[in-house]
């Protein structure tokens, strides 16, 4: 969980949860005007995984990681799902 520095007002932050396949969701407080990629990389670091090894979905859709939560239209409490790449024959 990131802490908001005192000098930045609360409305600049959004609460997001990233749920992986491990039943161990991580909750983030994140700047609304930062690229979401930063959050995803942090998530991967916490999970000892390399960024890019699994896809992230919002409401079932992929999304551009270079967008900010505001640009993605995310609301407080929204959920990001970390899934994994599937292959098959």
């Amino acid at each position: 969980m990131e802490k908001s520095p005192d000098n930045i007002p609360d409305q600049h932050f959004i609460n997001l949860v990233v749920k992986g396949q491990d039943n161990d969701p991580l909750y983030f407080e994140f700047r609304r005007d930062w690229e979401i990629k930063k959050l995803l990389i942090t998530y991967c670091e916490k999970k000892d995984a390399q960024y890019g090894t699994f896809p992230f979905l919002i409401n079932g859709n992929r999304f551009p990681h270079i967008r900010t939560p505001d640009q993605l239209g995310l609301k407080d409490g929204d959920e990001i799902v970390a899934t994994f790449y599937a292959g098959g024959a």
């Binding site: 992986g20 396949q21 491990d22 039943n23 999970k47 000892d48 995984a49 390399q50 090894t53 699994f54 970390a82 994994f84 790449y85 599937a86 292959g87 098959g88």
Partner: peptide, 21 residues
């Protein structure tokens, strides 16, 4: 084997903690 396949095997094998590639 493609990497994904191995990964998948592990994951599909019901190891939920297996997030690390």
């Amino acid at each position: 084997l493609p990497k994904d396949r191995k990964q998948l095997k592990e994951l599909n094998g019901g190891l939920p903690k297996e997030l690390i590639p």
